[in-house]
Write a protein that binds this DNA or RNA. Structure first.
Lengths: 231, 231
DNA sequence: CGATAACTTGAATGCCGTCAACAGAAGTGG
DNA sequence: CCACTTCTGTTGACGGCATTCAAGTTATCG
């Protein structure tokens, strides 16, 4: 999965592919809502999502949660943060997940290979671009656009790692998760999604989303995949 | 200014200080609202703000602007982005600015010095943390909190580069700029700021802000400087 | 001194949040 | 296998915060 993602930027030499595959092997299972690392902790390992979805989030005193990033299979949660001495946010699973705890040494091993290093840089910059786009979403787009935009993004990112089958993909986030990612409430999210379903844009059933009208969804969300810098 | 900022992370050897000071020397003057680099362009140089304030922003089709980051003196605008082949956002001045266009070679020169390299990494990670905090602001905090939080942040960041005199600092952003940074309208911003003034928390006159009651402002904005990772 | 931009204020509208009640699914234990 | 609980999803009524619209004032600059 990681190999596939990194090759989204450009092909890797065979030896590099093997190295990455080896380092990303294994992992442990976690149920939904388990913290992988908590705010205030000192980061030791780097974490890679192999299957399932996870998130970066912060809690504020009113008790509500803001999700800052959604991680899909192949994503590193905290590749770059280990320079700082404590986490200023937490990382948690959203669904059942397989997570690899990768020692820093493994990261340095990867960084020694120029092709991998470049791909990791690319992945990091795309993560930032995604964060910026989320800010635009939340700051300036109404709920309907916001939700459609996020769904488009996840659709494209899932495609990039080969997890879309036809027009549908595995999707187990709750509507509350989506709300927390977009600065909305679960109620608003529900109303918009019901609307999208009535309009025949989406289908959502047994832990799957089918995008029946990708073009329509894209138009509603004013989505362009430019910021994902796919090649 | 840049030296001062980088030493916020830890002291630099004398030779490093000189190198940084030399590379950050000079610069050109720009009036407010001039694009430094525009979405779609291919980034060549790296840009350093020496004086004034600038921003990273995106325009959406409805014509409105979302400011993604505010740059103060000593900040790099795009230290890391030059790997990607085109900008997915623009960078523009907000006030009169002095900007240094630094060739990539200068960046590589700095990265060869371990102490500078580490400080640059630190600065980059703090920039990301600021972006995340902005997302929390916009996603989950009401206008009054949001604005107070941003003002606290700017206050602390200005302090870190020695630009706060007593409790006041040079501040030439328009209320519309603040609105665009926080996903609000200029009208709401105005109403909140008038309120803060009536409450004696702030004073704003001839291009300066004085924070009369820093503790109160901090309390209103639920501000903690933790995420700025100052040492 | 005129023109433009920024700030200020009030009134009305509307989107989304809050509250509340219920339905359906999934998992637990008797 | 069936009560029971819990979590998620669904829907409607109401209210509030921020937006929109509009008008007027103050700064700023040539």
């Amino acid at each position: 999965m990681l190999v596939r993602k990194l090759e989204g930027f450009g092909p890797l030499p065979e030896a590099d592919r093997k190295l990455v595959a080896r380092l990303a092997d294994g992992g442990r299972q976690l149920p939904p809502r388990s913290d992988i690392i908590t705010e205030g902790q000192n980061p030791e390992n780097v974490h890679l999502i192999v299957s399932g979805m996870a998130c970066r989030y912060k809690l504020i005193d009113s008790g509500c949660r803001q999700i800052l990033a959604i991680f899909l299979p192949g994503d590193f949660c905290d590749l770059h943060v280990f320079i700082l001495d404590h986490m200023d946010h937490s990382i948690s699973t959203l669904t059942d997940c397989t997570v690899v705890d990768m020692p820093r040494s493994a990261v340095f091993q990867m960084l020694e290979r120029p092709a991998i290093a470049k791909a990791l840089w690319w992945a990091t910059l795309v993560d930032e671009a995604v964060l910026r786009e989320r800010l635009v979403d939340i700051g300036r787009r109404p709920a309907r656009e916001r939700i459609s935009h996020l769904l488009c993004e996840i659709y494209v990112r899932m495609q990039a790692v080969g997890l879309v089958d036809g027009q549908s993909f595995d999707f187990r986030l709750t509507q509350t998760d989506i709300a927390d990612a977009l600065g909305l409430t679960n109620v608003s999210v529900n109303k918009v999604i019901m609307e999208l379903r009535r309009d025949g844009v989406l289908e959502a059933s047994n832990a799957h989303i089918s995008v029946l009208k990708p073009d329509a969804l894209q138009a509603i969300g004013k989505f362009s995949d430019d910021y994902l810098h796919l090649t």
